[in-house]
Amino acid sequence: MTNKELIRVQNYKKSFGDKTVHRGVSFSLYKGECLGLIGGSGSGKSVILRSLIGLEKPDEGEIIFQSQNIAALPENDLLEVRKKIAYVFQGGALFDSLSVYENLAYPLREHTKLAENEIAQKITSLLAEFGLQGNEHVMPAELSGGMQKRVGLARAIIMNPDVVLYDEPTAGLDPYNTIRIQEMILELKKKGVTSILVTHDMPTATAVCDRMALLVKGKIVFEGNLTEIKNDEDDPVFRFVNGKEVSK
């Protein structure tokens, strides 16, 4: 992790109808780090994550990535940003009409000029790395939830993005698959991939994240590294982890 700021979210505000979800969220993501974005259900963690690649537009505020405000970019310009920032969807979001191989080949065929044999080589080695060898021609519906998430993760990183956004990557998984996902995130971190992890799963968050940001009632109430979390009843992260109401 370095001190180079890669993404800056500034005064992010978002409402859905009458419901105000974010009341001015600000945080930074530094190169090489993994930031854990935690918070209760419905606190809008995924909405922020989606906004980082322009899948949602904030009502107010800025999201600065490589000197440009993502929040103000038109859809066509966002396509370029999305080649650099990858998104790992909660359920994998695999294309159910395509096989595992075709799912993984999708971004390579769209954005590279690799020959088909090079694509095949890359996919075979990536599947082996993710413990999915032999599943090239399987359809997503035939995979278990854990395998779907691993394929989703593999598809997201196949283009070697600068940033990976994980939306609840371990939700609904058994301990074995949870550990596998954690290992994969740590492996990517070792390779220098910067990431944001949205999760409820505190063991995973503490295992892979360098810093945490706690989102409560539309604002970040804590942002810091794991050593800053106090064993104190007044500490918001301590209260959140221990299932107590966090109010601020």
């Binding site: 989606r50 690649i53 322009g54 899948l55 859809e75 966002l78 396509l79 370029e80 999305r82 080649k83 990858a86 998104y87 969807f89 909660q90 359920g91 979001a93 695999l94 294309f95 159910d96 999708y106 971004p107 769209e110 954005h111 598809r155 997201a156």
Partner: peptide
């Protein structure tokens, strides 16, 4: 519903 439309966008396609 299964976020495949979002995935198309997230993978840099329209």
């Amino acid at each position: 519903v299964t976020q495949q439309i979002d995935a198309i966008r997230a993978l840099g396609t329209s």
